[in-house]
Structure formats: structure tokens, C-alpha cells
């Protein structure tokens, strides 16, 4: 059990990659507070699923884009379980569309949720982690930050900003023993990537050197590693986990 007795927060925890991270952290002995925005049935089913396997996970409702709500939910989690050691900023949305037709609301919601949510939770926790001289922040980025796809200016901008934010915050918190890293997943089989997968079909697998889509568990295992003592000397890094997609190889 690599995360025994640690308290972790995972935003966007009820579905997709976040759900995988919650399960993996709980299996490693962490108490996991996961944040969901609106899908209560998904949140309830996850809490029950984790409990069945003997783990501890609890759902907390919060809009990550709201600064005050983020601070309040962090306080509520501390009141429940005491000090927090691990934060995974995973909550993210897409509003794909060509830039010339993009509505300002589509830009705003993506930036405010993906980047703003990361800012809000880091803001609520950074000083606390710094004070205890122990903490792990893991931001979920995307290969879309560096490998551009049409229709994703808003998403790419938010994820690119998360990469820069990760490195800059890592420098500020390193002296206090807090590490800040990001994971950049490629195509992961989740609800979020469903439309793209449907459109592209088998073409995606041909683009991925490892010849398969990623699963939430592929990302969750890396998150466990970054949160564990094994990764104590890694900070400010963006770890790409994409089956080799970003290598840009052309299938033969």
C-alpha cells in the first residue's frame, strides 16, 4: 500500500480518468475525497464501488471553476479527515469547434474549468501543503497541449497553460518539499473522448504505436507513482502517457 493513510483530493472524480485515479488511490490505502459537479448517480456508484473493495472514498459536490466553492470544499474535507497530502486536478471539459465559429462561452467554460479549476484547488491547498512540508500536486494535462488538433484551440490553450503553470508552481513550492507534476494523456477510452473515437474509428489505433487506446487505469497507475514516495525526486515534469502517439510515427 503505497498511499496508506494519505488524504487525497481528486477533482472530476466521478467519471473517466478521475474515476480510475480514485479507485487506484483507494486501492493503495489513501482516503480519497473526490469532487463531482453534477452527476450524483455516478458519484454514488463510485463511493459504493470503492467501499465494496474495502477502500475509503467520499463524494463532495463542487464546481471547480468557483474559487469560493473550492476553498469551502477543501475545508469540509479537512474537517472530515484532517490534513490533505495529495491533490489531483483532473476536472476538465471540452467544447470542440473550429475557432472562427467558437462562441466566447465555449472558450470561457473550457478555460475556467480546466485551468481555472486547477488554479482554484492549488490556491486552496498550496500554503497548507507548504506548511506541512509535504505534498503532491498532480495536474492532468493532455497531449493536445503540444500536438494540435483542429477544433481544440480552447482545450489546447487550457492544457498548455496547465503545463506552464505546473512548472512555475513546482519552482515556488520545491523549497517546501511539495512536488508539482502533470500527466499528459493521449487517447483514453472515456466519455469525453467518445465523439472523437467514433469519428476517427480505427484510424486512431493506427496512429498509436502501442496499437491500443489508453484506459483510465493507464493514467491512474502513473498518478499513483507520482503521489508515492518513489517519485519524491520528480518535480515540474510533464509525463506523457499516450502509447507513443506524440512520437508522430506514421504507421507502415
Amino acid at each position: 500500500m503505497r498511499l496508506k493513510d494519505q488524504v487525497a483530493i481528486v477533482t472530476g472524480g466521478s467519471r473517466g480518468i478521475g474515476r480510475g485515479v480514485v479507485k487506484a488511490f483507494a486501492a493503495e490505502g489513501a482516503k480519497v475525497a473526490f469532487i463531482y459537479k453534477g452527476n450524483q448517480p455516478a458519484a454514488d456508484s463510485l463511493a459504493a464501488e470503492v467501499a465494496q473493495t474495502g477502500g475509503v472514498a467520499k463524494a463532495f459536490q463542487c464546481d471547480v471553476a468557483n474559487h469560493d466553492e473550492a476553498f469551502k470544499v477543501v475545508e469540509a474535507i479537512e474537517a472530515e479527515w484532517g490534513s490533505i497530502q495529495i491533490l489531483v486536478n483532473n476536472a476538465g471539459v471540452i467544447r470542440d469547434g473550429l475557432f472562427v465559429a467558437m462562441k466566447p462561452e465555449e472558450w470561457d467554460v473550457v478555460v475556467q474549468t480546466n485551468l481555472g479549476g486547477t488554479f482554484n484547488f492549488c490556491h486552496a491547498l498550496a500554503m497548507k501543503l507548504a506548511r506541512q512540508r509535504k505534498g503532491r500536486i498532480i495536474n492532468i494535462s493532455s497531449v493536445a497541449a503540444t500536438n494540435s488538433n483542429p477544433g481544440q484551440t480552447n482545450y489546447a490553450a487550457s492544457k498548455g497553460a496547465i503545463n506552464s503553470f505546473t512548472r512555475a508552481l513546482a519552482v515556488e513550492l520545491a523549497g517546501r518539499g511539495v512536488t508539482v507534476n502533470a500527466i499528459a494523456p493521449g487517447f483514453i477510452e472515456t466519455d469525453m473522448s467518445e465523439n472523437v473515437r467514433n469519428k476517427a474509428g480505427d484510424l486512431i489505433k493506427k496512429m498509436i504505436p502501442l496499437k491500443r487506446l489508453g484506459q483510465p487505469e493507464d493514467i491512474a497507475k502513473v498518478a499513483v507513482f507520482l503521489a508515492s514516495p518513489d517519485a519524491g525526486y520528480i518535480t515540474g515534469q510533464i509525463l506523457t502517457v499516450d502509447g507513443g502517439l506524440s512520437l508522430g510515427a506514421v504507421a507502415m
Binding site: M127, A130, R131, E172, L173, G175, R176
Partner: peptide, 11 residues
């Protein structure tokens, strides 16, 4: 002390 420590000291 680093810059973040100055904030902590003030708090």
C-alpha cells in the same frame, strides 16, 4: 528563508 517563507512568517 525563501519567498514563500516570508508569507508564512507573516501569517
Amino acid at each position: 528563508a525563501e519567498s514563500i517563507d516570508f508569507l508564512d512568517i507573516v501569517f
